[in-house]
């Protein structure tokens, strides 16, 4: 439930702003000049704000579409991401957003038209070459879809861009708008997973695996391409049993032959983000794992990381062909 909405003066009469405000008539509205004056203030506490995040309606001015880090790819040469939102409904303890942002408030950039215009230019500059576009890097693509109307606003654009492939990364079961429309052949709905026992501890507010799996089955039946993302892989003594059971469950209940892709990565965070996480949640079980620093990142020691990645890769390629498998563990 959103109790407070900050609104940048510049977009206070934007049609999307007005539409959203209609849904939250009881909320306290606070006018601001620029979202950073609320979002970037240093003395706020991300952990406390997660109890009840506010919504910030803002305008993005530049950098609508950005190249992805090199390893973040599903096989295309040209890869970009865009973020219509900052922050997420869920509260996953391994998430880099809690290290990156000062605030847990949801920032929604309402000027979708500018994103679409830059997406069009970006795709056009590659002259009919395949371009992969990722959404869900700084937020969950679908979790707040009823509020943001994100899919209804962006999918018609991608419908007319056959050279582009859109990935909607999510942990949500919020698929109503997708199920209402005809499946797009150039859109992958990619769901992230950790095993149930790990999810229950680390992925706060995330729907159960069972619920997400049911949503995926429905989407698959409706013709949507499904992606599976096992990033981050989380270490524990019995990780092999847990992940083996998870892979078995997912690949057997879904139609494996129709799975678009699977990818994985090991848990790691940039060092400053990890240090911030330690301060915010010092007694979280994730932080009791063995970790070490490597290339300014903190993650599992190489032997643990490689064993996990190799184990998961072996398991996954039992279910899907290698050409659908993308280990992209250096992506942050």
């Amino acid at each position: 439930m959103i109790g407070t909405i900050y609104i940048e003066e510049e977009i206070s009469s934007h049609p999307r702003t007005l539409e959203i405000l209609k849904r939250y008539q009881g909320a306290t509205l606070i006018e601001i000049n620029a979202y950073g004056e609320v979002f970037n203030r240093k003395s706020q506490n991300f952990r406390l704000q997660k109890h009840q995040p506010s919504l910030i309606l803002a305008k993005k001015h530049k950098g609508y579409v950005l190249p992805t880090p090199k390893q973040y790819s599903l096989g295309a040469e040209y890869n970009y991401y865009f973020s219509h939102m900052l922050n997420c409904l869920y509260d996953c303890r391994y998430c880099f957003l809690q290290g990156m942002f000062q605030s847990a408030h949801y920032v929604l950039f309402v000027n979708y038209e500018d994103f679409i215009s830059e997406l069009k230019q970006t795709i056009a500059q590659h002259h009919k070459e395949p371009v992969h576009i990722f959404s869900g890097y700084d937020c969950d693509s679908l979790a707040l879809d009823p509020l943001t109307n994100f899919t209804n606003s962006f999918l018609p654009f991608f419908e007319d861009e056959p050279n582009a492939l859109l990935e909607l990364r999510t942990k949500s079961t919020q698929a109503r708008t997708l199920l209402k429309r005809k499946a797009l052949s150039n859109c992958v709905v990619a769901f992230s997973f950790t095993p149930d026992k790990i999810s229950q501890v680390l992925e706060h507010k995330v729907p159960s695996i069972k619920k997400r799996l049911n949503t995926m089955i429905e989407l698959q039946k409706a013709g949507w391409q499904i992606g599976l993302r096992f990033d981050p892989l989380i270490y524990c003594d019995d990780y092999k049993e847990l992940y083996k059971a998870l892979f078995h469950d997912l690949f057997n209940k879904l139609d494996s032959s129709l799975i678009h892709s699977a990818s994985l990565g090991s848990f790691r965070l940039p060092k400053p983000y990890f240090r911030k996480l330690e301060k915010l949640y010092p007694d979280d079980v994730l932080l009791t794992s063995p970790v070490e620093e490597e290339d300014k990142q903190i993650g599992y020691p190489a032997n643990i990381r490689d064993n996990m990645l190799n184990f998961a890769a072996d398991q996954i390629t039992n279910y899907i062909p290698e050409q659908k498998f993308f280990p992209c563990h250096e992506m942050i």
Partner: peptide, 12 residues
């Protein structure tokens, strides 16, 4: 290092 690291020990 010698102690077990298992997730069921913690519940959200």
């Amino acid at each position: 290092e010698a102690s077990p690291l298992n997730f069921p020990m913690m519940r959200k």
